[in-house]
Design a protein around this nucleic acid. Structure first.
Lengths: 211, 211
DNA sequence: TCTACTATTGATCACACGATCAATAAGATG
DNA sequence: CATCTTATTGATCGTGTGATCAATAGTAGA
């Protein structure tokens, strides 16, 4: 019970307490969205006075921005590792699409959507959003460029193609967030779309059917 | 000056005042986003006491929802009219993509993005978002089905294709909102993507270059 | 053990939000 | 002109936000 009967918080080292606070912000963002990351909600979760959170994080806007970055960067690293293990650009692209559109990351999608909205009134967050979008685009662009180099893909502007892919993925996930119910089939048609975008024959990106 | 020296507001008919308030909410949403639609901001714009706004709109969440609906429905009607004037499904689809991705509707895109985020804490708004998404999907589906009927398009699930198209458009627009600066080229590659999705030959949806 | 350092806290401020209600005054109606 | 209806308002409440600061208490070190 992080009950109203809390008396005092154990004294901990600044590093440990700072980590607790950052972790709480991270978890809160994934569970209830970025807008739920507030001075008082963090304090309640860590079971500490609100003023202590303010002591460690004198700027909530900055904490929200860094929380966003850590969540999104972790996702990128995860997908990057998954994708890098595959031999061909075609397989990497197919796996990336399948993974990002399987609906298992709605919590992260909520963070993205709220970041887009909140970024309009939180400049630090807006900067983080731009940075993380750049990082994602760079990763995708790497796959596209490798595919162009190996003559598997065909496009004269891999950078633009990467932006388009990212936008499509984000849009489909954000959409699925709202019409959850009959959103089981995202990812089925996008394969054909991406095939068209990168000059692949129809079906080249069909679900790997791992096995 | 809608200055602090305001003394009294002219007495108007309920219908007129209600319209003023709805208009103010509409304009505010387009200028500063849906989250700027607040009791006090509306009152300031209409130059009236906050309590009067509450008198006409006893539920701000409902007002925000209806404001969202009116903005998005107007956009849909506008695009629908534009598209319906064209003879073939292929032209209609190309025009729709060109129009929706030309960057001239960022104000509406902001409303969409904020609605996705705010809908998580405003059930009336969430319902409106679902309704308007359904309406958009129905319009797009109409174009796709016509194309399938005339053998211009090829897909075995026009409804799903329409959802995908909507998601892609929304995602690209939302993305452009953030990386405004070098976002001039949205819409160039998506044509190829859609061609792939609907079984068109490459270039079939190239910008009409009206003239 | 005593002292110095500092992690932690309660109290409080200023602000913005939606909401409520009795009181006021403008205009219509007689 | 007098009366009544009602559009409009000021005051106020309760909640939630981030922020600040003097005071407290735990702990490491002399």
């Amino acid at each position: 019970m992080s009950s109203p009967t809390r008396k005092k918080a154990a004294r901990k080292s600044p590093a440990e307490r700072a980590a607790e606070i950052a972790d709480a912000a991270h978890e809160l963002a994934l569970e209830q969205g970025l807008s739920a990351v507030t001075l008082r909600s963090i304090a309640a979760r860590v079971d500490v006075a609100p003023a202590l959170v303010a002591h460690y994080e004198p700027d909530m806007q900055a904490l929200i921005a860094s929380t966003f970055s850590s969540i999104v960067a972790a996702e990128l690293a995860e997908v990057d590792a998954l994708v890098a293990a595959l031999p061909t650009p075609r397989e990497r692209l197919a796996a990336m699409l399948a993974t990002l559109l399987d609906g298992s990351r709605d919590d992260v999608t909520v963070v993205w959507v709220e970041a887009w909205a909140m970024g309009r009134r939180n400049e630090a967050l807006a900067a983080s959003v731009r940075d993380e979008m750049d990082a994602w685009q760079a990763m995708i662009r790497g796959v596209v460029e490798a595919g162009v180099a190996s003559h598997e893909f065909e496009t004269d502007d891999p950078a633009a193609a990467a932006w388009q892919l990212l936008g499509m993925i984000d849009g489909l996930n954000a959409q699925a967030l709202v019409r959850w119910g009959d959103a089981a089939d995202r990812g089925s048609l996008i394969s054909h779309a991406v095939e068209g975008m990168l000059g692949l024959e129809r079906g080249a990106l069909a679900s790997p059917t791992v096995g």
